[in-house]
Nucleic acid binder design. Structure first.
Length: 716
DNA sequence: AGCACGCCGACT
DNA sequence: GTCGGCGTGCTC
């Protein structure tokens, strides 16, 4: 091991392993350095499989490939596939001085594979360090990460950061619990209410892989049904994964699972656990000590062993969209897992997205639905108040609440809590003409005029200018009405109307989990509705027409989803449960609410999208950035033949001070956006083309960046 | 992203 | 000659 290249000076014992690899000094002198494979001299390398294929953890597209490193003898035992490693990774050719290699910093990576030889012609650097012998990245997880990166035109390293939590040495030292033997198969329980419910649970228990879109009946039983699906999968000797939209839903599913299976059979993966606990839970899953996982979106990558079931609750909730690049959606990730692992798939919710409807329509999944009589038995009575009713209703114009709504609240309060769903927090955010309902807009920039704290003037939500003398440009009227009235104001008004009843509010900054069965007014924004122990006696869905007014593809679907989520917390009609929706009864989502038919609504939306060439029937990608950058990108990208480029068009001005989604493009002056659309089946080709063009672009470095987003959420 | 290489013009 | 500008390309 001695040689004039002298890695030994100072004693081989003390030298870091990386220095033990010999790097031929003659490389620079030789005119054809790559002509022949290198031989190793002077370094003690692993006797078997001395090459380590490493995935370098750097989120740059053109680095989205593996690099080969030499495995020093000392690291041979620990350097197993799946471990975290550190390697020297740097630019250009390295200086070789005193036989040691310099330049290039130490960066993290994952050892993907051990090989007998490398197909890289140059000399290999040595692994610097095996961070820990814990093998965390197996072939299956790597395959999933790659599939997600491909689907979303993102880099492996970016997706890897979403999939693997940061290491925590203390958690790694802890022993995971002993795995428990499979539990007995559960009874179908309330799954019996669904036409294919019992069969679905039996299929899971017997090792099958059924795929279903589940339209859950209103009421609290969905958590038990999820728990039974998990238990049945465990009974078959396989693992299960359930992803839910928020911490509260996870807590409910957790309670149901614990009630059915006891402690220790499932792990809860949520963001709010500390890093040590989070990693310990993740490791317990990775090690196979825990076979079932429930959690919020980050759990979609959980390395469950022998995956038998992936389940997702309420896929229309936008918190299922990962805000970090490449912004994968939990539904799509779980679809990829179901395909890769050939496991069962359960997409459940009170509502139904067009994507879910498409899974049924294409025959990939079967509907898991209850018959009409079951729906009638579980759902509350839904009544609507539309414009014509309002026009006839003197009381409604004076106060903001129609008579029917007052009655429902008053009657409901005699029997229990009443839920009032208001679409947004704040204080009269948007104003419209009281006569014709034309939105009130700023005369300088056309931004929305917003009401201030009671009494003071109107102000533009975009440019901030005050408006002192508004009149309607359409009909000339001078009176305004609040288009959306926030929770605080509604709470004040209702509180005054029912002075004997406590008013509780639940919203973004303060979310109530549950309320008791005693009469109370519960004012909540969508998604923050507390669960009433015995169900709400009534619910009031306010300002529905404002919810539907958004110029967004999903406006109808979203409104219906939010209404159903509130209505599902109300007692069944047979127990007096009533829902009053202040919304135009001729509108499609309102009709779907009244008939409690989310699947039918989603199917009609899907047909319309197919006709218009909209997602999810076609696949779309957005390319955003400065105009020259966008056109430059579109000139270089080699799109699939069927691709259609729409735009580019200027991006709408974003209002100052408005919260911006993480991962959205940073503020840019005069940005443009183009949409690229491909027909069904060409999504992978589109993503591949965009990724290649993006890689070439960032490698060049001279060009300004463009933002590429597959499945852009806000196309209108 | 860094960082080195190399191909041009200006300089001791 | 050779110093150093930055444009180009590689990183095992």
């Amino acid at each position: 091991m001695s040689s004039e290249n002298g890695p030994e000076q100072g004693g081989a014992q003390d030298a870091p392993p990386e220095q033990l690899a010999l790097i031929r000094e003659s490389v620079r002198k030789a005119k054809t350095p790559r002509a022949k494979p290198r031989t190793w001299r002077g370094a003690a390398l692993a006797k078997e499989l001395p090459v380590a294929r490493v995935l370098v953890d750097k989120g740059v597209l053109h680095l989205d490939r593996y690099f080969d490193y030499a495995v020093p003898e000392e690291l041979d035992a620990d350097a197993q596939p799946g471990v975290r490693v550190r390697v020297r990774f740097g630019a250009g050719r390295h200086r070789v001085r005193d036989g040691r290699r310099e330049g290039g910093g130490l960066i993290d990576g994952y050892l993907v594979e051990r090989l007998a030889e490398s197909d890289y012609a140059g000399p290999l650097a040595a692994l610097a360090q095996v961070v820990s012998p814990e093998r965390i990245l197996d072939e299956e997880l790597l395959g999933l990460v790659r599939a997600v990166a491909d689907r979303y035109a993102g880099s492996l390293a970016d997706v890897l950061q979403l999939a693997v939590p940061p290491r925590n040495a203390r958690a790694e030292k802890r022993d995971s619990p002993q795995p428990l033997p499979a539990p007995p198969a559960p009874e179908p329980g309330s799954w019996a209410r669904y036409e294919q419910g019992a069969a679905f649970v039996e299929a899971l228990a017997s090792g099958g892989a059924p795929r279903a879109v589940w339209n859950a009946l209103p009421g609290p039983q969905w958590t038990q049904e999820l728990a039974r699906a998990v238990a049945a999968t465990l009974a078959s000797g396989r693992g299960a994964l359930v992803v839910l939209p928020d911490g509260r839903a996870v807590a409910r599913a957790d309670a149901a699972l614990t009630a059915l299976l006891g402690e220790g059979r499932h792990a809860v993966l949520t963001a709010d656990a500390g890093p040590e606990k989070r990693y310990a839970q993740w490791l317990a899953v990775r090690r196979g000590a825990v076979r079932a996982v429930i959690g919020t979106r980050a759990a979609m990558f959980a390395p469950v062993r022998d995956l038998g079931l992936v389940a997702l609750w309420d896929d229309g909730d936008d918190s299922h969209s990962e805000p970090h690049a490449p912004q994968p959606h939990a539904r799509e990730v779980l679809l990829l897992r179901a395909a890769q692992d050939r496991c069962a798939f359960l997409l459940g919710g009170w509502s139904c997205t067009v994507e879910a409807a498409q899974l049924v329509e294409t025959g990939w999944a079967r509907p898991l639905v209850a018959g009409r009589e079951q729906v009638r038995a579980a759902a509350p009575l839904v009544r609507t108040v539309g414009d014509q009713d309002l026009a006839r209703d003197e009381a409604a114009r004076a106060a903001r609440l129609p008579t029917l709504a007052w009655q429902a609240v008053r009657d409901g309060l005699r029997h229990g809590p009443v839920l009032v769903q208001v679409p947004r927090r704040g204080y009269v955010p948007r104003m419209a003409c009281a006569a014709c309902r034309t939105p009130a807009r700023c005369r300088h920039c056309s931004g929305p005029l917003e009401g201030q704290e009671s009494g003071s003037a109107l102000r533009c939500g975009w440019c901030g200018r005050e408006e002192g003398a508004w009149h309607c440009p359409e009909c000339g009227a001078f009176r305004l009405r609040a288009q959306v009235v926030g929770a605080r104001r509604t709470a004040e008004e209702l509180g005054r109307a029912f002075p004997a009843v406590p008013v509780r509010t639940s919203g973004r900054e303060h979310v109530l989990d549950t309320v008791s069965d005693s009469p109370a007014l519960v004012v909540s924004t969508p998604g923050a509705e507390p669960v009433a122990e015995g169900g709400y006696a009534a619910a009031l869905l306010l300002d529905g027409w404002a919810m539907l007014g958004r110029p967004d593809l999903r406006a109808g679907e979203d409104a219906l989803r939010r209404w159903l989520a509130a209505a599902a917390l109300v007692r069944p009609q047979s127990a007096g449960g009533t829902v009053v929706a202040v919304a135009e009864p001729t509108l499609r989502p309102v009709q779907a609410l009244v008939r409690w038919d989310p699947a039918g609504h989603a199917l009609r939306e899907l047909a319309e999208r197919a006709e218009l060439g909209f997602p999810p029937v076609s696949r779309m990608a957005a390319v955003a950035g400065p105009p020259e950058a966008v056109t430059g990108f579109l000139d270089t990208v080699e799109l699939p033949r069927e691709a259609e480029v729409l735009g580019p068009v200027p991006l709408p001005v974003t209002a100052p001070g408005r919260p911006r989604r993480v991962g959205a493009p940073p503020p840019g002056e005069h940005w443009e956006r183009a949409l690229v659309r491909v027909p069904p089946g060409r999504g992978a080709a589109l993503a591949g083309a965009l990724k290649a063009a993006q890689a070439a672009r960032t490698a060049r470095g001279s060009d300004t960046a463009v933002w590429v987003r597959i499945d852009p959420p806000d196309i209108g």
